[in-house]
């Protein structure tokens, strides 16, 4: 574990917590893409499938973190699609998730390190996570604005994988550990946040709200 991965995981936890708090406190999921949250839940379940298969009772932080990620993302989907369904902005959350899931699944079958079920599921989860934020960014571009709290969520979510890139550089240099698939997908994922990062740094930091030119 290095400082980059530690802060990356903390940033990821913060993102999940910020979103849960926003929905719970405002009792509304306006401006939140339910599809992105569903895709994240699928990512966690397919990536941490080993938790369900051989549930090793030894409780270390990694197992606890995985359980937190899965339960928090499933609970977030429950809030969006059931509890606060009335506030879900379905017509703006209109990016076809199939266009992200099918290519990720296809690519996972073509480009992977080992052709076995667990590895394919893990690879699918990595590819899907890289594009899972697209419905959320698409929704913001359709509504033309993002609530400040949602911007903080996106900033934390984008920073997590950006910090992981630093972690991979660190591990390559000091541990000669490299996982090309995760690195390439992580770079693509972070690039997708670039224009949002620019808006966040130039606007939200100064206390303004993000409003996109309609």
């Amino acid at each position: 574990m290095n400082i980059f991965r530690l802060f990356g995981d903390l940033s990821h936890l913060a993102a999940i917590a910020i979103l849960l708090l926003k929905i719970w406190k405002t009792r509304s999921c306006a401006g939140v893409s339910g599809k992105t949250q569903l895709l994240f839940a699928v990512c966690f379940i397919t990536r941490y499938i080993d938790l369900f298969l051989h549930f090793v009772s030894l409780y270390n932080t990694e197992k606890v973190m995985k359980l937190i990620y899965i339960s928090a993302s499933v609970f977030t989907c429950y809030l969006i699609f059931f509890k606060f369904k009335a506030t879900y902005d379905g017509n703006h959350d209109s990016m076809r998730a199939e266009f992200l899931i099918v290519p990720a699944a296809g690519l996972a079958c073509l480009i992977n390190t080992k052709f076995d079920a667990i590895e394919i599921l893990w690879t699918f989860s990595i590819y899907l996570e890289a594009v899972a934020i697209l419905p959320q960014l698409f929704l913001i571009s359709k509504t033309g604005e993002a609530e400040t709290i949602t911007s903080h969520y996106l900033f934390a979510q984008g920073s997590y994988r950006a910090l992981y890139i630093l972690n991979w550089i660190y591990r390559y240099h000091y541990e000669s550990h490299v996982d090309t698939i995760a690195i390439v997908a992580g770079v693509v994922q972070t690039i997708l946040y670039c224009d949002f990062f620019y808006l966040y740094i130039t606007k939200v930091v100064k206390g303004q709200k993000i409003v996109l030119p309609a």
Binding site: R5, D9, H12, E62, M65, K66, Y69, T113, K114, W122, Y164, N167, S176, H177, D179, A182
Partner: peptide, 10 residues
Amino acid sequence: DCRKQTKDEL
């Protein structure tokens, strides 16, 4: 390279 493929990241 025979580095073990460990999934030790979240």
